[in-house]
Amino acid sequence: MRTVKQRILSFLGLWGVWLLLTAPWNSEEAAAGAVVALLVAALPFSRASPLGDLKLGPRALATLVAYFFVFTKALVLSNLDVAFRVLHPRLPIAPGIVKVKTRLKTPLGRLLLANSITLTPGTITVEMRGEDVFVHWIKVADADPEGATAAIVGGFEKYLEVICG
C-alpha cells in the first residue's frame, strides 16, 4: 500500500512534468494539471512507488544537489575517456567483466547506481543479482572484487546511501 509520502512525491512528480510541458505558464493550465495530478496520486494503486524511497531531510536534499554535480562531472569525464579511446590509433582497451558489491537496498537507489555506473568512465552495468553487480569494464584495472568496488561504486554509493539508502 502506498504511504502518504509516496502519494505526495508522485503528485509533485506528475505536476512538475505537467508544468514543464506547458512551459509559458498560465494559472488555469497549472490549476487543471494540479487537479489531475492530485486525482492520479490518490488512485488506490497497491504497488509502492519507487519515488517513495527518496529521503526528504535537509541533508538528503543537499546530497541530492551534490550528487547532481558529481554525476555531471563523471559524465563529462567518461565522454573524454571515450573520445580518447576511440580516437587513439591503437584502441587502448582490455575489456572484462568484474563483480562489485553494493550496500544499497532500495530499488530506486539501485536503479540510480546502475545508471550512474553505465554513464561513468569505461563501465557498463551488465547484471544485478542480490548485492552483486556485474560490470563490463573497458580496461580492467583491478579484477579483485574489493578493489573494483572501491574504483567503480565507491564514488556514488556514499551519496546514494544518504539520498535513498
Binding site: 567518461s78 565522454n79 571515450v82 554513464l119
Partner: peptide, 14 residues
C-alpha cells in the same frame, strides 16, 4: 570498436 560490448560503451556514453 571490436565487439558489441565496446561498441555499447562508445554508443551509450557519447
Amino acid at each position: 570498436m571490436p565487439d558489441a560490448f565496446n561498441r555499447m560503451q562508445a554508443g551509450t556514453k557519447a
